[in-house]
Amino acid sequence: MTETAFSGRGHASSSDDRNLAFIAYGLMFAAPFVFGLTSLIAVVIAYVRKPEADAVNASHFRFQIRSFWISFGLAILSAAALLVGVGFLLADLVTLATNNYRGWEAWEAASVDAGALRLHAATVIGLIIFVIAYVSAGLWAIASALFGMARLSAQGAIGRPAA
Rank of each mutant, 00 (worst) to 15 (best):
M1D: 09
T4Y: 08
A5K: 15
S7T: 15
G10Q: 11
G10M: 06
A12S: 00
S14R: 14
S15Y: 11
R18C: 07
R18E: 12
R18M: 06
A21Y: 03
A21V: 02
F22G: 01
F22S: 03
I23C: 07
M28S: 09
M28Q: 12
F29L: 15
F29P: 00
V34T: 03
F35C: 13
L37P: 06
T38Y: 06
S39V: 08
L40S: 04
L40Y: 13
A42E: 06
A42H: 08
V43A: 03
I45M: 06
A46F: 08
P51D: 01
E52C: 07
E52A: 15
A55F: 04
V56N: 00
N57G: 08
S59F: 06
S59C: 06
H60C: 04
H60A: 05
R62G: 12
F63S: 04
Q64A: 04
Q64N: 05
Q64P: 07
I65E: 14
R66Y: 10
S67Q: 03
I70W: 12
I70S: 04
I70D: 02
I70R: 08
F72N: 00
F72A: 06
L74E: 03
L74F: 14
A75V: 14
L77C: 14
S78Q: 12
S78G: 14
V84Y: 11
V84K: 09
G85V: 01
L90E: 08
L90K: 09
L93P: 07
L93Q: 14
L96Q: 01
A97G: 12
G103Y: 09
G103L: 08
W104S: 02
E105V: 03
A109V: 02
S111Y: 00
S111H: 04
S111D: 00
S111F: 10
A114G: 15
L119H: 14
H120C: 02
V124F: 07
G126T: 00
G126Q: 04
L127M: 13
I128N: 01
Y134W: 11
S136E: 02
G138P: 12
L146C: 12
F147K: 13
G148D: 00
G148E: 01
M149K: 03
M149L: 12
A150Q: 00
R151M: 02
S153Q: 07
G156S: 13
A157D: 05
A163L: 05
